[in-house]
Nucleic acid binder design. Structure first.
Length: 102
DNA sequence: ATAATGACAAGAA
DNA sequence: CTTCTTGCCATTA
């Protein structure tokens, strides 16, 4: 699996996140770990920072439900538009958390 | 090769 | 709640 294909796999998975739901970098890393072999939450974060512009990046948050640094306001607005409810500055993963299909 | 840096995560204090 | 420590791994210097 080439790095480009790995990036594609991450982006494809991000696009598969249903509207009004969110998932974490770690969950994506885990899901791809079972598919390809190499994965880490940091990698997914780096990939999103570089190539996340073409996918619903705002549906990816950290495991604490915090929004990506520098894009908090933007992500919050986009998620709120999909019906998602915030608890202060966090997303309740218990309710809106989504796990990618294995 | 080593060191520092990230849209991360989990645990301890 | 905050802050610090470990583990993680590609990228950059």
């Amino acid at each position: 699996m080439t790095p480009e294909e790995y990036v594609e796999a991450v982006l494809t998975l991000v696009e598969s996140i249903p509207p009004g739901r969110v998932t974490s970098y770690g969950a994506i890393a885990d899901a791809l770990h079972d598919r390809s072999g190499r994965a880490s939450a940091r990698l997914v974060g780096t990939i999103m920072a570089r190539h996340g512009g073409a996918v619903p990046w705002y549906r990816v948050v950290n495991s604490a439900g915090r929004l990506p640094p520098g894009h908090e306001q933007r992500a919050r607005a986009l998620l709120a538009a999909e019906g998602l409810v915030f608890t202060g500055e966090r997303v309740p993963m218990r309710e809106f958390g989504w796990n990618p299909p294995g």
